[in-house]
């Protein structure tokens, strides 16, 4: 018998979310979106609950989670960093900015630092092309980021 452990309040929220979609297996992607909002990521345990609530197989749920790059099974850091790789940001040197983050944090895209503080992700255009290249840390937007400005950004959160 496999046992799955989850915190009660979040588990109840998740079950409510499934109910709000009438426990329809066809709503799997919408449910996973909400689930990722609740838990920050989609650990195996969450996928087990979703499968059970939507009356589908956990293999199918994992199939969907592993297909879409938006879904992640790695917990995000306390301060999730997103670097825009849209065309405008890219041509204005976003890749060098990304390399600088990788260098300082010693993690790759999609990973989280060992202390759980930062995670690194790429995204496509936040609609602030005039500020290219753009970096987001949590909800805060940084414009015209140069590689030598990366260290300063990280220091803001290192206290």
């Amino acid at each position: 018998m496999a046992i799955v452990k989850l915190p009660e309040n979040k588990l109840n929220q998740l079950i409510e979310v499934c109910k709000s979609f009438n426990n329809e297996p066809g709503e799997l992607i919408n449910v996973l979106h909400k689930a990722q909002e609740i838990f920050g990521y989609l650990p195996a345990e969450v996928q087990e609950v979703v499968a059970k609530e939507l009356n589908t197989s956990v293999a199918h749920v994992y199939g969907v989670v592993s297909f879409y790059s938006f879904f992640t099974m790695t917990p995000k850091g306390e301060h999730p960093i997103s670097i825009c790789m849209g065309t405008a940001c890219y041509v204005r040197g976003a890749e060098k900015v990304l390399d600088e983050f990788k260098h300082h944090l010693k993690i790759q895209v999609g990973e989280t630092t060992a202390d759980g503080k930062f995670s690194l992700a790429c995204l496509r255009c936040v609609g602030a092309c005039g500020l290219a290249p753009v970096v987001m840390v949590g909800e805060k937007v940084y414009g015209r980021v140069a590689p030598d400005g990366v260290k300063a950004i990280l220091e803001e959160y290192s206290a």
Binding site: M1, V4, L6, P7, L11, E48
Partner: peptide, 10 residues
């Protein structure tokens, strides 16, 4: 035997 997956509250 019960081989089902159980959801347990933490």
């Amino acid at each position: 035997f019960d081989k089902s997956t159980q959801i347990e509250i933490e």
